[in-house]
Design a protein around this nucleic acid. Sequence first.
DNA 1: AATATTTTGCAACAACGTTGCAATTTATTA
DNA 2: TAATAAATTGCAACGTTGTTGCAAAATATT
Lengths: 138, 138
Amino acid sequence: MNAQIEDILKRNQLSVTSGRVKILELFLGSAGALSHGDIEKKAGERFDRVTVYRTLQVFLEKGIIHNIPTSDNSIRYALCKDNCHAGHHHDNHIHFVCNDCGNTICLENVTIPPVKLPKGFTSTQVDVVVSGICKECK
Amino acid sequence: MNAQIEDILKRNQLSVTSGRVKILELFLGSAGALSHGDIEKKAGERFDRVTVYRTLQVFLEKGIIHNIPTSDNSIRYALCKDNCHAGHHHDNHIHFVCNDCGNTICLENVTIPPVKLPKGFTSTQVDVVVSGICKECK
DNA sequence: AATATTTTGCAACAACGTTGCAATTTATTA
DNA sequence: TAATAAATTGCAACGTTGTTGCAAAATATT
């Protein structure tokens, strides 16, 4: 796993630091998306709040992670798949938020259905967030 | 308009206060969705921050407004149509965020396409947010 | 008009997020 | 591998956003 992590960082021209490695470990080891708070807790007290913020920001810019809109105002982040590039992502999957366990997961195999917009509107991105009960909690 | 506003409040068993009337006026007079900040600015300094928070909260609970998930963490609110009831809304429309003017609008006539979930998942709500360029900014 | 109920504003607080800068860590070069 | 350059981190301080308790004010009820 460590080789994989180093690879991700180097591919994105980022220095390999313990903080970045730790956060990537958390993402790789987590089934669902993580919020800033999740990461701060799971990473322990070894890392400063500010470092977590800055790391997430850098990962976002590089397209390593993407953020998921939620109706409460908690921002959640998840790893992007390989075909995501810095700036514009190809998040062609939908996001599922479980009302029971609270987990947010990427449903990679569920593609976003086409949306017909009124005349004059053009779309660059479509976010779909489904809430309900997940497979585990059923 | 004032009669309409009073009607909305009374129908929801809320006392008619200047703060609530003002905020409803803002919603009725605005094409798009409003954030807490928008409302605070537009309402002027006549109303306390806390009042705005509490009013939006009450309106949400009563189903007068609904909130729109956005990928940045700014929550936006928009008026519900008549067939929304307290608790569970029938937000069968999609939301559009313009990358140019920043407006968030409800596309009432664009219904949410059906989403096929994997086995074991059940959905209670589907939020669709499309980003792009709106009719006005084109 | 008087009373009961609800809502508001204030103050204080907690959580979240940002910025500048010095110290440390990582990468680079020889 | 050691020395230097570059990038990242932690700290402190700050601003914004959102919450809570309580007394004062406004609204509803009789």
